[in-house]
Every structure is written in structure tokens, then in C-alpha cells.
Amino acid sequence: MACSLVCKQWLPPSRYQLFRNTTIHIDVDNFRKFCELLASQRLNAYLGRLHLESHIIDDRFVGGPEDAFQFNQDLGRLAGLPNLQFLRLEYHHDELIHEFPAVLANSFTSITDLEFVSFWFSTFDQFVEIVESLPLLCRVSLDEIGWYDLPDNDEDLVSDPSRPTYGCGNLRDVVLRCGFHSPVPVLLWLPFQMRITRLTLALGPWQSMAHLEGPLLTRSLHSFGSQLEHMIFGSPSGYVPDLSQAKQLHTLELTEIPCTNLSMASDCEWVPTLLSQIHSPLLRRIVFVIDLGRRENLDFLNWPRIHEQLTRLSSLRFVEFALPSHKHWATIAISERLDPRQYSLQVRQLDGPYKYSLGMFNN
């Protein structure tokens, strides 16, 4: 900030540094002021990241329509940002208007990174249309997403003869956090995204994945598994995907490992089972994110099997454990359980809720 006050020549590069990688959060409280800022054209060329939050389920909204932000009515008002690369759309539980994909594509042509959080689409094809209309899009994140047009039974969706054949996109990075909603539509779409090298998949504990979702996920991984380099996977339900085709895997993160007071040893057996499927000669880093309750719950993990599988991976160089508590004690306990080892071991404490992000793969 101080640099921008030196002289006029320092102002443009200072604004670039200030706003290029800073996420601007727009909601009901500052929507009108942000529109006024855009109209002035002073910072439009420097904004690189935008987080748009609708008021639809925001109980703070008390003003009139002129003070609110609604995706259907107001998204087009935020155009004119030529260098915007990151866009997060959050909280929309109304049906989207038919023109929404076109408005998004016309207003944000430079987007490379798109996130939807607690967002409902009128149809799944509407989501596909949005993704395919953004030519530079490389990453899409879906967190607690719903589709108004889906049948009650997932089997009807899979067997529907009118289900479209999706085109191959340019996506390299997909994040899917299922939550309460069925992952079936996305799992049907994933096999057509043949350029994926990074995949995050977080399943809810109520999704067994054994009947329908499991085979669909296996089909997806077989489609692009040969080029998959980085993967984050969370399965409190115990489902184990088939990673036998992931021969190019560099990094693997296992999340939602349940070592809570309500868990049993069988709830964690999916961890060594999944490790046993990995045969990538390029795997260098594995991260375990453990939901640890009490210290003694750490014994729910089958440490002999985990140690055996980690030792088998000769290319492995870094192993990391992340826990919400007991870091100092866990550092000693885990080191003893995994000794001897040929890789570097680190134990860290989670700062706040775990976030499903592939940012660590940029390191």
C-alpha cells in the first residue's frame, strides 16, 4: 500500500501486486459500492480473484433489491474485468435463468479457475454448458452442489436413454465434494474429461459407493487414470476406489480418516487397502488427514499394514500426517509406529477446518 503513494509511476504496479492475487468478496453488504468501483474503471484491469455471494439464504439481507446481489439479475453488471482468473459463486438456491451460462461466458471470458459452493443448477446440462463455454477454464470445484432436474432414483439417471454424451473439455483439475447430494451426475460426466491430471473427491459418510457410484467412479478413473498425477480422496464410508491405473501418480492425500470416539478399527481399513493398490513408480508424497478424537483412537489405524505399504513404495520421499490436536504426542507416536523408514516424516496440526484444495500440489 505504501508503494502506491510514492508517485504516479508506482501506482499501476502497486495496484497489480495488491489486487491480482487478493480475493475480493462481494455480498449484500458491499455489492452497490463494488458496482460503483467498477463504473470508475480504476481497478478493473487489476482484479484477478472474485468471490460472489448471493443473498438468497443470507439472513443478513434486510434492504431492497437495489442493495442485494442475485446471480440471475446482477451477474452481468460485474462485466469488464479483463484479467479475472478466479471466480467463486456461492449460495444460490433458486433456479437459474436460461441465459445464465451465456451471461457468465460473456462477462468472464478470462476465467481459468471456477468454484461453485452451495449452489443449485436448474439442470446438470446447464452446468456442462457453463464449463464448455469458458475457453480458458482449467479447474472447476463443486462443493455442496445440487441439480433441480434429477430423478429421485440415481439408477433412472444412469439408464436414461436420452442422457447426453458429453464432449471432451480442457479441464485438468476437478474438485468434487459431494456432501448430502448424489455424485452420480458428475461421475457420469468425468470420463469425458480426458485431460484431468488432478482430482479431489470427498465422499459423505452416508454414501456407501458400493451399489452405483462405485462402478461409475472406477469407470472414470480407468478413463483418465493413466495421466492422473495428483489425487485427494476422502472416504469415511470406507469405499475404496480402484487406483491400479494411476501409474503416473505423484501425490496422494487421504482425508476424513475417522479416528473419533464413534469409530471402530474397521472404519479405517480402507486406508491400507487403498495404499496396496498403488503401483506408481513416480509417487513421492502421501498425506494423511486424520479426524482424531482421543489419543488412544490413533490405534484404530492398522499401523503394521500401513508401514508395510509405505515401505513397499520405493519412490516415496515425503509422508505427512495432519491432525486437529495432539501434535507433539502424535509426532512421537507415529514415528515409533513407522520405524524404520526411507522417507521424510512430518506431523502437523490443522489450523481450522480442513479445506479440499489442490494448492499443495503447486509446491
Score class of each variant (00 low, 15 high):
C3K: 09
V6G: 03
V6P: 01
K8M: 05
Q17P: 00
Q17T: 11
N21A: 03
H25V: 14
V28C: 10
R32I: 10
N44G: 06
Y46P: 04
L47S: 01
L52D: 04
E53S: 13
D58R: 13
R60P: 02
F61V: 14
V62Y: 12
G63F: 05
D67W: 05
L75E: 01
L81N: 09
N83A: 10
R88F: 00
H92L: 02
L96D: 06
E99T: 14
F100D: 08
P101M: 02
S107H: 05
S110Q: 13
I111L: 12
F119C: 00
F121M: 07
S122Q: 12
S122N: 10
L134F: 03
V140Y: 05
D149F: 01
L150R: 11
P151W: 06
D152S: 13
P161H: 06
P161W: 05
P161T: 07
R163L: 15
Y166G: 01
N170V: 06
R172N: 12
D173N: 15
L176V: 15
R177N: 01
R177A: 01
G179H: 05
P191H: 06
F192T: 15
I196H: 07
A202L: 14
P205E: 13
P205I: 05
L216Q: 13
L217V: 09
R219A: 10
H230L: 03
I232V: 15
G234F: 09
S244D: 06
Q245R: 12
A246T: 14
K247P: 00
E253F: 00
E253A: 15
T255G: 05
E256P: 00
P258T: 11
P272Q: 10
H279V: 04
R285F: 09
I290C: 05
H307Y: 02
L313Q: 10
S315C: 06
L316N: 02
L316F: 06
V319C: 07
L323Y: 04
T331C: 03
I332Q: 13
E336W: 03
L338F: 07
P340Y: 06
R341A: 12
L345D: 06
Y356A: 11
S357Q: 09
F361H: 14
